[in-house]
Design a protein around this nucleic acid. Structure first.
Length: 401
RNA sequence: GGGGGAGUGUCCGAGUGGUUAAAGGAGAUGCGCUGUAAACGCAUUGGCUCUGCCUACGCAGGUUCGAAUCCUGCCUCCCCCA
């Protein structure tokens, strides 16, 4: 059901460069008129710091903001430290647990830093919306008086929930009003967001009107699918590539993207057309290199690919493997090591899971699978060898001194 | 204020007294294969001092030889009427 909102990117050339890849630019013609005035526009984006990291899904909109900056406009980045405590109902079929104030504070700090991996700091104004949303109750009543319940629940997310008999928290109803008030507070000319933000963005126009401002225009960008190739990229689904992920991790996660989702990644993350006539494997490698280069650098991209080849093509252990002493795991009077306990300690898996992995041939010593039932191994047979658990977990073992 | 209904493993979701660690699906993991951590196929998927033991079906008690399934209280949520 959420799939329908993950719009495929049109390859058609847009009328304006800034409208490239956009799904909606509303109201029709307004942005063009605004641009035609030659006046620098105030372009707003709000991000609620509900999770600690920005991922590639966020960068789709950030890249678009960057283009506005390059065209001479000013970006107003709103860190939704207040709205994070309300919870954006966009695209949700149930209310999600809200982050604590402490989490919000921590996330807000990392968000700004990470956003500047894409945005030009000098042309960005960062504002926290608690600045104006922590308003007097009388003012809040004034804001609430600007709309009706019918208007608030007409959004698709709520209609679906109502039809399914799912709960809608009263708090969630407030969200579009607050986000709209952000636009009033910063006097936004344009607001950007993902397609799932369409309702909120348009609602902001009404709020601005109610406060005697000229309503903003609205531009929505496609939602990037996660590395599962199906659902929206999101931290909570675990299908994301974070902008601060290590190069090797970033490369590997990108290689995991299904071939079918590659064109979207090319267009939305790298801003280029997918290469024609290239073998899928090569095309994906080029994509992965491009992404690592974008968020780290060229050397990191090369290193990440080498690392990838080593692990997944040559099936070898990485160059530098972390060491682990066997001392704490000795049993039988210091003779043997109980592998499940060792593995559970080193890799944070349960010892039952470790046993299963051994049974299934997923545990290797210097590249050779351990026979099933290898639960206790003599310490001397392990010393100096590389223990591999699954595809990606390695440790070089050292006997106790 | 009144009436009705629901809470199951990471998630969704069967199961209404007896081989039930609990169908099925998703996700995840492992193996095989390979052009990739793609796709496809197979397998695994509560924990542990592991041929056995412990814990588990919202929480706390109770009935019973035996309960996720019955009873009581509590908590949370949903719907309808007002």
């Amino acid at each position: 059901m959420r799939q329908s909102s993950i719009a495929a990117v049109s390859a058609e050339p847009a009328s304006s460069n800034l409208e490239r890849n956009a799904v909606d630019v509303l109201p029709a013609g307004m942005l063009e008129d605004q641009l035609a005035t030659g006046r620098p526009l105030r372009v707003k984006l709000g991000i609620d710091p509900t999770t600690p990291d920005i991922h590639l899904g966020h960068t789709v909109v950030l890249e678009k903001l960057r283009e506005f900056q390059e065209a001479g406009h000013r970006v107003v980045l709103i860190v939704g430290d207040f709205t994070a405590r309300v919870g954006d109902p966009s695209g949700r079929s149930a209310q999600r647990p809200l982050p604590t104030p402490e989490e919000i504070e921590v996330n807000a700090a990392t968000y700004q830093e990470q956003a500047f991996k894409v945005l030009d700091r000098d042309r960005t104004e960062v504002r926290f919306n608690s600045e104006w949303l922590r308003m007097a109750p009388e003012e809040l009543l004034g804001l609430l008086a600007q709309t009706t319940v019918a208007r608030l629940i007409e959004r698709d997310d709520f209609q679906k929930r109502l039809a399914a008999g799912a709960p809608i928290a009263a708090l969630e109803l407030l969200y579009p009003l607050l986000q709209g008030y952000d636009s009033v507070a910063v006097e936004a000319d344009v607001e950007l967001g993902g397609t799932d933000q369409k309702f909120n963005l348009l609602f902001g126009r009404d709020v601005q009107s109610a406060y005697g401002q000229k309503p903003q225009s609205v531009l929505t960008m496609p939602i990037l699918v996660g590395i599962d190739g199906v659902r929206k990229m999101s931290k909570s689904l675990g299908n994301y590539v974070g902008v601060t992920d290590e190069p090797g991790e970033m490369f590997g996660k990108t290689m995991r993207v299904p071939d079918t989702a590659m064109p979207d990644y090319y267009r939305l993350v790298l801003g280029s057309e997918p290469p024609q006539g290239m073998a899928p494997n090569e095309a994906k490698r080029a994509l992965a290199r491009g992404i690592v280069e974008r968020f780290h650098d060229a050397a990191a991209a090369r290193g990440a690919e080498e690392h990838f080849n080593r692990l997944f093509v040559e099936r070898q252990a990485p160059e530098d493997v972390e060491e682990a002493g066997l001392g704490p795991y000795l049993g039988n009077g210091g003779e043997t090591v109980h592998l499940p306990r060792l593995m559970s300690d080193l890799f944070g898996i349960s010892s039952s899971e470790a046993r299963r992995l051994i049974e299934q041939g997923g545990v290797k010593l210097d590249g050779e699978a351990l026979p099933s039932g290898s639960l206790d191994m003599p310490q001397m047979a392990l010393d100096g060898r590389v223990l591999q658990v699954g595809k990606r977990r390695f440790r070089r073992l050292r006997a106790a001194a």
